[in-house]
């Protein structure tokens, strides 16, 4: 059970949040112009790394804001939380 540092509210218990899968999956600017394969990638293909993962979370039972989380899937340590629109952070060495 994590403690998650909501960028808007501070540290809260995981029960207040929902995870929504991988972050930084941009919706194609012009969907009508992408191929079926590109559209399929956007819809269905996600990373499942052992190690650092970027994911989207919402603080449902709180401020209801969406934000991004950098989490190590091996240790479950949350390295960083950051607001939507902010760039993907560098993966720290070790």
């Amino acid at each position: 059970m994590f403690i998650i540092n909501c960028p808007y509210c501070g540290e809260r218990d995981q029960t207040e949040f929902t995870c929504h899968g991988e972050a930084h999956i941009a919706r194609p600017e012009k969907p009508s112009e992408v191929t079926d394969e590109e559209w399929g990638k956007y819809l269905f293909f996600r990373n499942n790394p052992k190690g650092m993962h970027f994911e989207r979370w919402t603080h449902d039972h709180g401020c209801r804001r969406w934000f991004n989380v950098m989490r190590n899937t091996v240790t479950d340590n949350i390295i960083k939380t950051y607001k939507m629109g902010e760039p993907r952070p560098e993966i720290p060495n070790e």
Partner: peptide
């Protein structure tokens, strides 16, 4: 031109 789901 676009709405959610259209491309699918």
């Amino acid at each position: 031109e676009d709405f959610l789901g259209k491309r699918s």
